[in-house]
């Protein structure tokens, strides 16, 4: 069973379309509504997703962890993480999970810098490049894109990767766990569309400071 986890916060306008686009490629879509103040949960459910609701906003990392636990409990064999803001292309799922189905690796990470051309704004590009250098220093993983929410995990890998960083530092945390657990991983190119909606909704380039702060404090616990 292939399960897609979609953490969502105030995505009324777009969540229905994202869920609908995912359904042909997965057996189940779990939307974790992270304390949305709008009709995100309702729209996701109408579009055919199973919805788990965080009563209050706990951050994308927390939502992913809730989704991960649920996906494992319902017996997922492959777990995909997918952003709710419509930046990713669901049709790329079959190629992303192919190496896991073939048993070549445990984790496949989407990369917007590998071959495919994404329309990335210049400032965002520079910040992401810095994050890549940071990850090389802390995990020694040779990746081309370290903050991409489009990933695929085998069940065995998902059972072992626990996310404790509630907010955005979870992206670095997942990579650190891949490194320390010695999981076999692979990067594959994915498309990331920077639409006006996603840019207004998503991270600001300056958020890397907040992420770095969370990452640092997380290390102390």
């Amino acid at each position: 069973m292939i399960v897609a986890i979609v953490p969502a916060f105030n995505e009324t306008k777009i969540i229905g379309g994202v869920v609908a686009s995912l359904r042909p490629f997965v057996d189940k879509v779990i939307v974790v509504d992270d304390g949305s103040q709008d009709r995100t949960a309702e729209r996701a459910q109408d579009a055919g997703a199973e919805v788990l609701t965080h009563l209050i906003n706990r951050g994308q990392g927390a939502a992913l962890e809730t989704g991960r636990m649920a996906a494992i409990l319902i017996g997922a064999d492959i777990i995909i993480t997918f952003d709710a803001d419509g930046q990713f292309v669901a049709a790329e799922i079959p190629s992303l999970i192919a190496p896991i189905v073939a048993g070549e690796c445990d984790v496949v990470l989407g990369s917007r810098f590998l071959f495919k051309k994404s329309n990335i704004p210049l400032l965002r590009h520079s910040v992401l490049k810095l994050a890549i250098i940071f990850t090389r220093l802390t995990t020694r993983l040779q990746l081309t894109d370290t903050h991409n929410g489009f990933r695929a995990f085998s069940r065995a890998a998902a059972e072992r990767i626990k996310i404790t960083q509630d907010r955005m530092a979870h992206a670095s945390e997942i990579l650190e766990q891949i490194a320390t657990l010695g999981l076999k991983y692979k990067e594959l190119p994915v498309t990331v569309n920077y639409t006006d909606y996603s840019r207004a909704k998503g991270q600001k380039s300056t958020d890397f400071l907040k992420i770095l702060k969370d990452w640092f404090w997380g290390k102390l616990l």
Binding site: A62, M69, D166, L221
Partner: peptide
Amino acid sequence: IQIQQKKTDREITKIVRKIAMDGGGY
């Protein structure tokens, strides 16, 4: 205080997650 705050945050997340899982039929 910062460390304590982070711990409290994680505890809150656990509770919120539990409620979400219960509500989802887990």
